[in-house]
Structure formats: C-alpha cells, structure tokens
Write a protein that binds this DNA or RNA. Structure first.
Lengths: 194, 194
DNA sequence: TCGAAAGTGGCACTCAGTGTCAAGGGAGGC
DNA sequence: GCCTCCCTTGACACTGAGTGCCACTTTCGA
C-alpha cells in the first residue's frame, strides 16, 4: 500500500520530468522546475531518484535485468547466438509493448550526451552479467578467455545499433527486424568453436 | 611560445590531479585541491579543462583521432578486419609507449564510474568516425546497412576488452597480444561478404 | 613608449546533491 | 477515542561543480 503510493509518486515525477525535458531539453531543465511541476519538494525528489539523470535512466533499468534473466533461462545447450538473440529480444519487447513512451525516452537519452554516457555505463554492467552467464554455460574462464566478454559486447552493440536506428526512424522501423539484421552481422563470430 | 606555456600549465594541472586522485579517489578530490596543488586559480582551471572529468578524459582524446586517421590511411582495398586491427593498434601503441602513465589513467577511469561513462561517450564519437570511413571504403550506406556500424562497434569492443584485461593485469599482459585475441573472436564477423 | 589583446585571478551567482531536524499522518496498542 | 511509534515529507543550510563578469597583468606589435 505504501509501495503503491511510492510508485505513483515516482511515475508523477517521471512524467513531469519527461514533459519538461521534451520542451526545454535535459540540460536546461532544473530540478526545481521538475519538483514544482510534480508538486513535491526538492528534497523528496532526491529520495525517489539519486540524481536528475536517474529519472531517465531508471526507465531502462529493468531492460538489463530482463536480458540477464532471459539468458539464464535459456537452455544450457543452446547456441550463444540464439540465446543472446532471445535475451536482447526481451529488452526489445519493452520498446514494442510501449512504443510511444519508450521512443520518447530513447530519443531523449540518445540526443543528450550526459544521459547517453550514463546509459552506456549501465550497459557495462549488463555486459558483465551476460559475460558471467555465457562463461558459465560454455565452461570458459572469463579471466583468460575473451570469448564470453566479446560475445556479450557484440550482443549489446547489436542492441545499441537497433535502438539507434529505431530512434532516428522515429519509431517507423521495426525494432525486432533491426535486431535480426544486427545479429546477422555478428552471427559468424558468435559460434564458440575454434 | 604561448602555446608551449599553455601545454605546460595543462600538464601541471593534469599531474596534480592524477596525483591527488590516486590517493583520494576521483570523487573525493575537489577542484579546489587540484588548483592549490597546481598553483593556479580555480577560474583558470576551468579555462584549461571544461570539467573535472575532462582532466582524465582529455588524455585519451588523441586515441580516437589516431584510430580514425589510421583507418583513413589504410589502403582502400584492405579487408575491414585488417584495417580495423591497424586502427586500434594505433591507439594501443600509446599505451605501450608510455605504459606507466597510461596504465595509471586507464585504471583510474575504469574504476571510477563517472569517468568510465564519459569515456564510453567518447567512444561513441569514435564509432561514428570509424563507421563513416568503413561505409565510404565499402561503398555502403550506413543509414540502411548496419554492417559498418557493427564492424566499428565490434572493433571498439575489442579495444575495450583489451584495455580492461590490461588494466586488471596491472600492465603485465601484452596489450597487442590481448587485442589480437579479441580480434580473433570478432574476425569471422568482419568479413563484409554476404 | 604606448596601446591593443590575451591570459589570469577574484567575486558572485546558479544548480546539483547531501545532512539534519522538525512537523505531519497513518497503524497499532491502551 | 486517544496515545505512541514509525515512516514520509518539507525546510534549511551547506558543499562542490561550473559560469559570467570585471579588473589587473603580461605580452606583443606599432
């Protein structure tokens, strides 16, 4: 019940922030403007979000966790290319499910350098998760074997590329089709045999 | 002559900043401490560097330009895998030439999230440069063809992985050998034939 | 030698983020 | 019904990053 209210307030803040950023841009939007629009105090804002960037980045937080969980859930014997495609597909589904909201956030992030940087930093965490799972399922030591790390990096590069092209197409392109094409490029390198 | 002094002051600031960050960590080091150690005013600091992060990131600025220039200088008919390996090698050479200084900076960046984020943002710029050159030399349209973008992304992922493993090995590993192993993974995907 | 131009320092300001404390508001025990 | 405890909120003050402005110094060319 208290949790419900908390999520409600967070959604209120997020909506106010995105609205303002869409008009004035992220950098020119101050926290004071956001809290006034959301009807809360400045101090409360920072109890819900650790920073101004966090409001935008938080919306993508679950993507990484979903990718990690999906990869874990894939059959152990599945080829890395297939398992990774499904994992990334789980994140892509978020964009397909809520195209308007997702597109707005993705475009804001990609056109705001500081937000883009934060998102890339998040992806570094995702890469570590994927690397650990791949190393486990392939029985390789990620400290000495670069394959798991590179495979995770390539999958995330494909994800990034799909997001980027989806963003510049203003949502006209199909995210899954873009992802398929990106995976077609990296496919030949995702086969672990040597 | 004025340019000489400018570079001298910049080097002074950088040295003071790295020294302090090595002891106290980046976040706990204030600009006031840096300017006091460097013997300049706070205002002058921000005339040399646009932000505190910039002091560390600036040291890697030339890497991206070198990669881009080297890729441009490679023969037009050269295979992407070979050309990209040479381009990345140009950046790796910096680390090999000045191992102590480079290692110190790389380790600071990799262990400081905000610096890591800034560096990744820089790499996004490098990726655009490499993408444009690859698209040109392969005669492909990067707006519709994902290959140049993915190839650039994979090359930078290899660079990142090599830097990371070089950093955690405390400089014991050979950066070029790490890069070769990373490129061996992505090699099968860098062949543009379809 | 004089004057323009550039570099430097000092000051005041905005804004992000944090610690602290007091007030409000709901849930449970008397 | 009332009191108490606990959690949330708001207000205030503070630090630190980054910027605009102005005065001063240095330097270079006329």
């Amino acid at each position: 019940m208290a949790e419900r209210k908390r999520q409600l307030v967070a959604a209120e803040i997020t909506e106010a922030a995105l609205q303002l950023c869409a008009v004035k841009g992220f950098d020119s939007t101050t926290v004071d403007e956001i809290v006034e629009a959301a009807g809360i105090s400045r101090r409360t804002f920072f109890r819900y979000f650790s920073s101004k960037e966090d409001v935008a980045i938080q919306l993508l937080a679950s993507l990484g966790a979903d990718m990690r969980d999906e990869l874990r859930a894939r059959p152990a014997g599945e080829a890395p290319a297939v398992a990774l495609r499904h994992a990334v597909g789980m994140a892509i589904d978020h964009c397909v499910d809520e195209p308007v909201k997702s597109l707005r956030v993705v475009q804001l992030i990609l056109r705001t350098p500081v937000l883009h940087a934060r998102m890339l930093e998040r992806q570094a965490q995702w890469r570590e998760w994927l690397t650990a799972d791949l190393a486990g399922r392939l029985g390789r030591d990620p400290a000495t074997d670069l394959f798991p790390e590179m495979a995770a990096g390539m999958a995330l590069a494909a994800f990034e590329a799909a997001m980027r092209h989806w963003s510049v197409s203003d949502g006209a392109a199909d995210p899954h089709e873009l992802t398929d094409r990106a995976f077609a490029v990296i496919g030949p390198a995702l086969d672990p045999r040597r």
